[in-house]
Simulated assay, not measured.
Amino acid sequence: MSAVVALRLPLDTDLGAFVGLLLRLGVPHRVSEESGEQVLWVPDAQLAERVRELYARYPEGSGEAGERRPPLGVAVSPARLLAGTRNWPVTALVLLASLLVALLSGFGDNLERVAWLAFNDFRVQGDYAWFLPVTDSLAAGQWWRLFTPMLVHFGVLHLAMNSLWFWELGRRIEARQGSLMLLGLSLLFSLVSNLAQYLFGGPSIFGGLSGVLYGLLGHCWLFQRLAPCAHYRLPPGVVGLMLAWLLVCLSGLIGALGLGQIANAAHVGGLLAGCVSGMLGGLLARRRA
């Protein structure tokens, strides 16, 4: 079934709060810019009519006190949420792949399986890990190692936190710029963050989506500053919180407390790459507008 137009609004209309309401209600949608207007699309005509009614009542995303979650008449069931992932296929695919890798690798405990996806192939002998040169792996055709460390997570909490952030940021980019853009950015940020960690940290066992997440954060942050749009408007304090956490990790405090080693170079590399892509994307979007 093709998408249906629910709303057409001027470009200067702030849809951020209303889009946030749709996200909270689990309503599948996307927003595009066409002929100098913002166009909000939904999967079917019935849902489009209900979204129009909702916008007429709650254009700012909420009603009076006690009506913060107005009923839309659409069941927000697991089935509806699952169907909604069709609007964010790359976001869902990355999260599903991360979960499968976590289960197959025992959340990082099965090092033999982790070695299949690690940036550096390695062999464990006793208490030591022997790393093979990256050039040897690439010469053998193992190009996937440049990207797949982003799917490897060490522990349930590691996977849960990264998945929540990817779900939040990935959907925004996929709704605003499309699935191919999110896939390309995720692979780019994974490549840059993995190379940065290898170059500055040397051969080691590292993984996780956090380098990609900092890239997505930087992308949304600068894109929004240069070309304001509803999807990239992050809640107040999010950018500051993430940057503060990055500084805490860079200080070495986390490792000193025995809470594990942090791939700081991957975080910084991903953030810088994301800022560059966000700046370029924002400038291009502003020029088109």
Rank of each mutant, 00 (worst) to 15 (best):
F122K: 02
A115E: 10
L250S: 05
L185A: 12
I173K: 02
D12R: 08
P78S: 06
V5C: 14
F154A: 01
Y214G: 00
L187E: 10
A45D: 07
P70F: 04
S62N: 00
N162P: 00
P203A: 06
S105Q: 01
R80E: 14
L183A: 15
N194G: 13
G258N: 04
L15V: 06
V31K: 03
A265P: 07
V101L: 03
N87E: 13
R171C: 13
G36C: 03
P70M: 11
L213E: 06
A160S: 03
I173S: 04
S98P: 00
S190W: 11
S137L: 01
V192E: 02
G218N: 08
S137M: 09
L280E: 14
G237I: 14
L187D: 11
G202S: 06
A97F: 06
G202M: 15
V76G: 04
G252N: 05
L187Y: 09
C275V: 14
N110E: 12
F154G: 00
E64W: 09
L182M: 09
E67C: 05
A3E: 15
V239T: 12
A160D: 01
S105L: 05
G278E: 13
R176I: 02
E34T: 15
V27S: 02
D109N: 10
L159A: 14
S137K: 03
L246E: 06
N194I: 14
T148Y: 04
F107N: 01
G66P: 00
G16I: 06
H29A: 10
G240C: 07
D44A: 08
L185T: 07
Y128C: 03
R288K: 11
R286L: 08
Y198W: 10
G278V: 15
V90E: 04
L132C: 05
D121I: 01
T148Q: 10
S32H: 01
L25T: 05
G260I: 04
H219E: 12
G274Y: 11
V248N: 01
Y232P: 04
V27A: 14
Q197R: 12
L100Q: 04
A244S: 13
G84Q: 07
L183D: 03
L271I: 00
L185P: 09
Y198D: 08
A140H: 11
A56K: 14
Y128M: 13
R233F: 05
L169W: 03
G201Y: 07
Q177K: 05
E49S: 14
A6Q: 02
E168Q: 15
L272K: 06
G66W: 03
I262F: 03
L104N: 04
Q46L: 12
D121K: 14
T85F: 09
M181R: 06
A56W: 12
L40C: 07
W88I: 01
N120P: 04
L21K: 07
